[in-house]
């Protein structure tokens, strides 16, 4: 899977590593307990990332994928120049971010409603709602995403439905289009976002919402004043998952849209053009941009309440 979901793990794993070494230096037991995790992170994340970093600083080669043993910032210069000149790389990066932002906003809004509904439901309805969140995860992502093609195409089910009830006079081309990519990507990340928010809501005391209403807050107001601030840790996790996954989205835009995202373009650079240093440099730049964006997101969302600790 070429999805870049593991991107935000860098600060987390490093921070927890540092914390465990510094804060609990007296306890070697903690470090021992962490050893398997550290080994795993080193093997599948840190070492491959260092290799990627090394390739990004290599010179391009005419007959190899890169020139081994060379040092150069040529690949970075090329990508940055292209972005600053608003050329191809700019449009790819900006489209990826746009897709990420739209998907994140839609997903978090839907997930908040859905999680609230699960929280308030009781008995069989609650079980059904929870089950229906997890159900899509039982099917492989590619099939789930492909299924939107017949559903959203101009001759598909959704258009037929809208035409038959008279909401549309002409069929709309949902796929391939950005709308299709957004729908597909929202569908992919929604379960994770719902579970992230629900896990926080489940620990919340309903009396607090009642207290707000008792003191004069209308239903929507009580949600804004009391539910959202307390659910903020869950909302932040949901937003980070949605954003990181969607900026690096591969399957949904690949199958449901004709626009090229960063992940799709990296694939083309690697497998089509064989320009490894450029692909690696673009990846590193995207990684930095996303870390910056996520940090800003943390800072902004934290202002709206919740006591979420970054570390």
């Amino acid at each position: 899977m070429s999805e870049t979901t593991s991107l935000p793990q860098i600060p987390t794993s490093l921070a927890s590593l540092r914390e465990s070494v510094a804060g609990q230096s007296s306890s070697t037991r903690a470090l021992l307990l962490m050893a398997p995790l550290i080994a795993f992170e080193l093997l599948v994340f840190v070492i491959p990332f260092l290799i990627l970093l090394r390739i990004s600083f290599a010179e391009p080669s005419s007959d190899l994928i890169y020139e081994p043993g060379t040092w150069s910032v040529e690949a970075y210069a090329g990508v940055i120049d292209n972005i600053l000149a608003f050329e191809l790389f700019w449009s790819i990066v900006s489209y990826s971010f746009l897709l990420g932002i739209v998907v994140t906003v839609v997903t978090v809004a839907l997930a908040l409603f859905y999680a609230y509904a699960i929280w308030r439901a009781t008995g069989l309805i609650k079980t059904l709602l929870l089950f229906s969140v997890v159900l899509p995860l039982l099917t492989t992502l590619v099939i789930r995403t492909y299924a939107f093609s017949p559903l959203l195409s101009p001759t598909g089910t959704f258009n037929d439905l809208l035409l038959s009830v008279g909401l549309l006079s002409d069929p709309v081309q949902f796929v391939p289009s950005t709308v299709g990519a957004v729908i597909g990507q929202v569908y992919i990340v929604l379960p994770y976002a719902v579970l992230a928010i629900y896990s926080v809501l489940a620990t919340m005391d309903w009396h607090v919402v009642e207290a707000a209403r008792d003191l004069g807050a209308s239903r929507p107001r009580s949600v804004v004043e009391v539910v959202v601030p307390q659910a903020m840790p869950g909302i932040i996790v949901a937003a980070v998952i949605s954003f990181a996954w969607s900026v690096g989205a591969y399957a949904a835009p690949g199958l449901l849209s004709e626009n090229i995202t960063f992940a799709l373009y990296v694939e083309e650079l690697l497998l089509g053009d064989l320009r490894y240093p450029t692909a690696a440099a673009l990846s590193v730049i995207m990684l930095v941009l996303m870390l910056v964006t996520i940090s800003i997101m943390f800072a902004v969302l934290n202002r709206f309440g919740g006591d979420f600790d970054l570390a």
């Binding site: 005391d205 009396h207 607090v208 009642e210 207290a211 707000a212 209403r213 008792d214 003191l215 004069g216 807050a217 209308s218 239903r219 009580s222 004043e225 009391v226 601030p229 307390q230 903020m232 309440g305 919740g306 006591d307």
Partner: peptide, 30 residues
């Protein structure tokens, strides 16, 4: 009438203070 339209005010058994607001913000809420 819903609770927010009534001129009653309730003190709950578990007090139901808003955990993300300061003491003053809690008292000011109504």
């Amino acid at each position: 009438d819903p609770a927010y339209e009534r001129t009653t005010s309730t003190v709950f058994q578990d007090w139901a203070l808003f955990p993300h607001k300061t003491v003053r913000e809690n008292v000011e809420f109504g």
